[in-house]
Amino acid sequence: MARNPYYDGPPSDHFDGTRFFNPGQASTDRGLRAMLRWKLAGGAAKWPKSVPVTPAKPEARVDGLCVTMVGHASLLIQAAGVNILTDPVWSERASPFRRVGPKRVTAPGIAFEDLPPIDIVLLSHAHYDHLDIDTLRRLHAAHDPLMAMPFGNDAVVRAGVPAARCVTGDWWDRLDLGGGIATTLTPANHWSNRWPSDTRMTLWSGHYLSTPAGTIWFVGDTGYGDGRIFSEVRERLGAPDLALIPIGAYAPRWFMAAQHVDPAEAVRIFADVGAGHALGIHWGTFQLTDEAREAPVAELATVLDAARIAPDHFVAAEAGSVYRFG
Rank of each mutant, 00 (worst) to 15 (best):
I133Y: 03
A213H: 07
F230Y: 15
A155E: 11
R138Y: 00
R33F: 06
R33H: 12
P263N: 10
L203C: 06
L65W: 03
L288N: 01
P311G: 06
L279A: 13
A79D: 05
L115A: 10
L65H: 08
L123T: 05
R200G: 08
L85Y: 09
F15M: 09
L288V: 00
A251F: 10
A275T: 01
L65M: 09
H282K: 07
I181R: 00
L32K: 00
T183G: 00
G320R: 00
T135Q: 07
T168C: 09
H277F: 15
I216Y: 04
H143I: 14
V167M: 14
P196I: 11
G64T: 06
D144T: 14
K39W: 11
E318N: 01
L185A: 04
Q78P: 10
A41F: 09
W195M: 14
L242I: 07
A292R: 11
D134S: 02
A164E: 10
V233C: 15
V62T: 09
R293V: 01
P58W: 01
H127L: 14
L85A: 05
P88T: 12
S210I: 01
A26Y: 00
R37T: 15
P116I: 03
P5S: 06
I110S: 05
A73P: 03
M35F: 14
D198K: 07
L279P: 13
L304E: 12
R253I: 05
D87P: 04
M149E: 08
R236D: 13
R93E: 06
G109V: 07
F270K: 14
T215I: 08
N193D: 08
V315N: 01
E113Y: 02
A56S: 07
H143R: 12
L131K: 08
I110A: 03
W38K: 10
R194Y: 06
R158T: 15
L177T: 05
R236C: 10
P246L: 10
A316N: 02
P5N: 12
P196S: 11
W171C: 06
H140N: 15
W38T: 05
D241S: 13
V261T: 13
L244T: 09
P196R: 11
Y323F: 03
K39I: 13
G152A: 07
L203T: 05
I110T: 02
I181Y: 07
P96I: 11
K49G: 15
A258C: 06
V167P: 05
R308Y: 00
H140Y: 14
G248A: 13
A243G: 06
I216H: 07
M1C: 01
W47F: 12
V157A: 14
L304M: 05
L122Q: 12
V233S: 14
R19S: 06
V297T: 03
H277N: 11
L85W: 06
D119P: 09
G71C: 10
G178P: 01
